[in-house]
């Protein structure tokens, strides 16, 4: 009993430094955000004026908030679909086909994920460039000239054009995540399924997906977080939220309010709103994707 208590104290002492750092640099600023959102604050001095929920009242009447929310949801929906489908496809092919060049493919697919998102943004800005971008040049070469657009300058195409680099960057990461999970599935299961006459598609839906489902659930939560918080850099570099706010996101709008308009109170209210959305969507995703866990 005494020994067990000593063991627990030892663990607590070891955890304490990390816990203190976590509390000071993560939990405290996090809670402070909720507090600051109730104030009018320029972020230039310690002068803060309590205004209750006025920032939130303004937020719900602000049309840019709804536009930005819609754009974030666009990223969530289309980003998830594109990234999920491609990464699942590539990881399945790699896990099932056992290509000789698998190591090479893994590096090729994962490579964009190793680049800074700033670099990714600039690469795609060049690809989309209306004067010399490779996309329009190739389209023209293929006789698709009439479909050429100013991809990043047209409100109807800008969001779609932004999802592509986002997907290009993350497909490799999720591919490896799924691939690693697939490596743990015993080969006998596939062999038995084959003997029972199951094709590749049937094996995917009846064996692979159910057995890596927990990894997929984690990936879904990552998708939600990425769509809302990891898209900032890309949009900031590539379009700055334009044209005319067509690609504005909650995070870019938050940044603008804080650092351009010196309205830190309102910016933190947007941060709280972002937290609520992330929390609710993540909760829904986890709740509705809960399934029986298979042990093998």
């Amino acid at each position: 009993m005494k020994r067990e208590r000593g063991y627990k104290s030892f663990i607590a002492v070891n955890l304490l430094p990390t816990l203190i750092l976590y509390a000071v640099f993560y939990i405290y600023p996090f809670l402070k955000t909720f507090y600051v959102s109730l104030f009018s604050w320029r972020g230039l001095s310690k002068n803060m004026k309590f205004i209750g929920f006025a920032n939130f009242a303004k937020l719900f009447k602000d049309p840019i908030i709804w536009k930005a929310t819609k754009n974030n949801l666009f990223f969530l929906f289309w980003g998830t679909i594109v990234i999920f489908l491609f990464s699942l496809f590539f990881s399945t092919v790699m896990a099932r086909k056992k290509f000789k060049e698998m190591g090479f493919y893994r590096i090729v697919f994962f490579f964009p994920n190793m680049l800074s998102i700033i670099v990714v943004g600039l690469i795609w800005k060049f690809i989309y460039n209306p004067s010399f971008g490779i996309l329009n040049t190739v389209m023209e070469f293929l006789g698709l000239g009439k479909y050429i657009k100013v991809w990043l300058g047209d409100p109807s195409t800008v969001m779609g054009a932004l999802v592509v680099p986002q997907a290009w960057m993350y497909i490799g990461f999720y591919m490896l995540l799924f691939f690693a999970a697939m490596q743990n599935i015993p080969e006998e299961l596939y062999e038995s399924a084959k003997l029972d006459g199951a094709g590749e598609i049937r094996q995917l839906f009846s064996i692979t997906i159910p057995l890596i489902w927990e990894t997929m659930r984690t990936a879904f939560v990552f998708f939600v977080i990425n769509a809302f918080s990891k898209t900032f850099n890309l949009v900031f570099v590539v379009t700055r939220g334009g044209p005319s706010r067509s690609s504005e996101l909650l995070t870019t709008y938050l940044y603008q309010n804080a650092f351009q308009f010196s309205d830190f109170g309102y910016a933190t209210a947007i941060g709280v709103y972002l937290f609520v959305i992330l929390f609710v969507i993540s909760f829904i995703v986890l709740k509705f994707t809960k399934a029986e866990t298979y042990e093998y």
């Binding site: 800005k125 989309y128 460039n129 209306p130 004067s131 100013v150 991809w151 990043l152 300058g153 047209d154 379009t239 334009g242 044209p243």
Partner: peptide, 11 residues
């Protein structure tokens, strides 16, 4: 310029 809406200042 037809594509200017997508251009940064350096572009």
């Amino acid at each position: 310029h037809k594509g200017l809406i997508a251009l940064s200042h350096t572009e």
